[in-house]
């Protein structure tokens, strides 16, 4: 299944893109993240949350959407 992944904040500096589409056959979000960590080893060191269907979800959650968002906390003010 093709999954669209959107990156925010400093994650885009790790991935060098704001969004991309990945072919993924698993069904748990953490499995998808493992795939991304292989592609972007530095992503593993970053703090971020995952959202699907406009809701923050734990990484153990089932992938229910073909689009997920990786959202880091911002500190600037």
């Amino acid at each position: 299944m093709l999954i669209k992944i959107k990156y925010f904040g400093l994650l885009t500096e790790v991935t060098n893109c704001q969004e991309e589409t990945i072919d993924f056959s698993g069904n748990i979000i953490s499995e998808l993240l493992e795939l991304l960590f292989v592609k972007y080893p530095n992503l593993k060191n970053k703090e971020f949350q995952v959202a699907q269907n406009q809701e923050l979800v734990p990484v153990e959650a089932k992938l229910l959407s073909n689009e997920i968002v990786l959202l880091p906390p911002f500190s600037g003010g």
Binding site: G9, L10, N45, K46, E47, Q49, L56, P72, P73, F74, S75, G76, G77
Partner: peptide
């Protein structure tokens, strides 16, 4: 929303990266 406090220096602030 963000249970884990990022490690120091992990996320730069405005004075470091601009805004």
């Amino acid at each position: 929303a963000f249970p884990k406090i990022p490690k120091q220096g992990e996320v730069p602030n405005c004075s470091e990266v601009g805004v």
